[in-house]
Simulated assay, not measured.
Amino acid sequence: MKPKGAERLRPDAAGLSRAAAILRGGGLVAFPTETVYGLGADACNDDAVAAIFDAKGRPNFNPLIVHVADMEAAKTLVLWNVEAELVARAFWPGPLTLVLPLRDDAPVSSLVTAGLPTLAVRVPAAPVARDLLAAFGGPVAAPSANRSGQISPTRAAHVIEGLGDRVDAVLDGGPCSVGVESTILGLYGHPTLLRPGGVTEETLEKLLGRRLAERHPSEAISAPGQLRSHYAPQASVRLNATDWEPGEARLGFGDVPCDVNLSPSGDLEEAAANLFDALHRLDATGAEVIAVSPIPHVGVGVAINDRLSRAAAER
């Protein structure tokens, strides 16, 4: 168990230097990406990676994403191909994770891959994440910085509330701009959408010139974010609510009466950026049920509905 309370670091030169030193020493540092806050550790240190699973209470069969500074760094860890080059040039840095065959000489801990022959890698766009990777100088394994299965954090306060006694430091870079985890694209066979996210399926298909396959829910876990129950508040979640029951906390979208509105104007990107913070806020009211307005299942709305459906799943 970590000492009570994590160091809260500013994303300046001193804070970044301190965060990198903690990572080099095998510690855990939460840091903001454009999607959510990640719980980072040296991806090549078995003990440090094991500490991620311990801090989150994460099952060890659930693999981690490794964050790297650039495409060349990714190529030292995975077997690159033409499609990876195409999508990485289009969307990196950014909210897209690629799952590719692991190189035999890749130095990452086997705990990162959960024993799979593939590795999930991405180059984040958030300046604080990029500055931390540069200061550290190596790959950083980083799932979302929350207890396993609970609401993802998009602000430093969310991390401190959930993991304050389980993480060494939090780099406070303010709120995350995208607000839902990265899209995960499998490129170890036919291109497969393993998790919807900030880069839409339609955009990827247009770039690749062919339809993506989709992972069947009954298939074994092959990437993060595939557990049936995930991103869940303490309250139960009722989806597609067009009316409200007494005592429910009301999460709205569009021009509807509610307690918290993801986007009064019906903007899906705004809704995605606000999703997890809104769930944190409503859960803090102590309501037993959070009722959610219907969200259009188009564009980034697909990712929003994916997160909400997992939040609403039986636990």
Rank of each mutant, 00 (worst) to 15 (best):
L187D: 09
S152D: 14
A19K: 13
G15Q: 05
D277W: 13
T33H: 13
A145S: 02
P63T: 00
G186D: 00
S109P: 04
A235E: 00
V36H: 00
R307K: 08
G26D: 14
V140A: 07
R147E: 07
G189L: 00
V256S: 15
G5A: 04
N81G: 08
L251I: 05
I52Q: 01
V36N: 01
A157H: 15
I65Y: 02
S148P: 07
L116R: 01
T97V: 07
A30L: 03
V78N: 05
Y188L: 06
E214R: 15
G209L: 09
L132H: 12
T154N: 05
E181L: 12
E202R: 11
R195P: 04
D255G: 00
R130S: 14
A232G: 09
I22V: 15
S17M: 07
V289W: 14
S293W: 14
F31T: 01
G162Y: 07
F91W: 13
A73V: 01
L96Y: 11
L102V: 13
G173L: 03
G197F: 09
N60E: 13
Y188W: 15
V170P: 02
V128M: 07
P175R: 14
A141W: 03
S17N: 11
L282C: 10
G189Q: 05
T183G: 05
L212Y: 13
D259C: 11
L185M: 02
S222Q: 13
R130V: 12
R122S: 08
A74T: 08
A13R: 14
A157C: 15
K75V: 02
H190D: 06
E83L: 11
V167A: 05
G247F: 08
L64Q: 05
A50I: 03
A41P: 00
A134V: 15
C176T: 07
A125N: 06
L282A: 11
V82H: 15
V178G: 05
V298P: 02
A273F: 03
V123N: 04
L98A: 07
W92C: 11
R122N: 11
G197W: 07
A6L: 14
S109Q: 02
P217E: 06
T183V: 05
R211P: 04
D105N: 15
L39P: 09
E161Y: 13
I290R: 04
S265M: 11
P11F: 08
V49N: 01
V289T: 15
L86A: 12
L275D: 02
D243R: 13
A223W: 01
E201K: 09
P191I: 00
L9I: 08
G94L: 01
A241F: 12
A284P: 10
D46I: 00
L227N: 04
T118W: 02
F253T: 01
A135G: 09
D47Y: 01
P139R: 06
R210H: 13
P101E: 03
L207N: 09
H297M: 06
L100V: 12
N261F: 10
A157N: 15
